[in-house]
């Protein structure tokens, strides 16, 4: 179901990010919040420190800049915090953008980049391939108003905790496409080819082609 979630007008925690933009995930204990400081308002995601295995899974994603924001906690801290852009929002609430020009991020580009992002994940771990265990749209974030050439889609912080080994008989691409089709229905059908192109290009890049 697409919604911005339950509305809590009586919330005592006035710094929780609005439901429409919130990238928190209860299943991994992450919290999306913002704070006011003299230099302005800053937004963060915090979550418990990862296990050693989770750190290993995160490393290649982090090295390639595929995780949203900048991690600020030290390796030894009990929790870690990511500073993230104010405009970052869950993928699922996106209305279609199919026209305009060079400074518009259209559906074709969005789904191509999603294919590329998820394709990169599928080829990051060599003989130990991983895939996202939950609904993939819950671990993807979109950032608006970027400079030309900057990435607009990312994995949300903590994605490494939602990875599971991919059985050889399972097609990650097919499973992700199915989930995107559930969320975006007819819209995804129109641009599925761009998703598959992005996925294939990521595979080719991983093979060094």
């Amino acid at each position: 179901m697409t919604d911005f979630g339950e509305v809590r007008h009586d919330s005592a925690d006035t710094s929780t990010t609005s439901r429409r933009f919130n990238l928190a995930n209860d299943s991994i204990g992450s919290h999306d919040f913002w704070i006011e400081v003299p230099t302005g308002t800053h937004r963060f995601i915090s979550l418990p420190a990862p296990t050693t295995r989770q750190r290993q899974l995160r490393k290649p994603l982090e090295e390639d800049g595929l995780i949203l924001g900048h991690r600020r906690a030290s390796e030894a801290a009990a929790t870690e915090t990511y500073s993230i852009p104010a405009s970052a929002r869950p993928l699922a609430y996106e209305a279609p953008v199919t026209r305009e020009g060079a400074y518009s991020y259209t559906d074709e580009e969005l789904f191509h980049d999603l294919g590329d992002l998820l394709g990169s994940l599928s080829h990051k771990y060599g003989d130990d391939p991983q895939m996202v265990a939950t609904d993939v749209t819950r671990v993807l974030a979109l950032v608006d108003f970027v400079q030309p050439g900057e990435r607009q889609v990312y994995f949300t912080p903590g994605v490494e905790r939602l990875l599971v080994p991919r059985p050889p008989e399972v097609s990650a691409e097919g499973q992700y496409a199915e989930q995107l089709e559930t969320v975006f229905s007819g819209r995804f059908d129109e641009v599925a080819i761009y998703f598959r192109m992005g996925f294939a290009e990521a595979a080719a890049a991983a093979r060094g082609e």
Binding site: M1, T2, F184
Partner: peptide, 21 residues
Amino acid sequence: DSVDWSSFYPDIEEHPGMLAL
């Protein structure tokens, strides 16, 4: 216009965030 409203109506009570908007 940047929200996908296709699943909102008729089950509006299931979308309290959208209704609040």
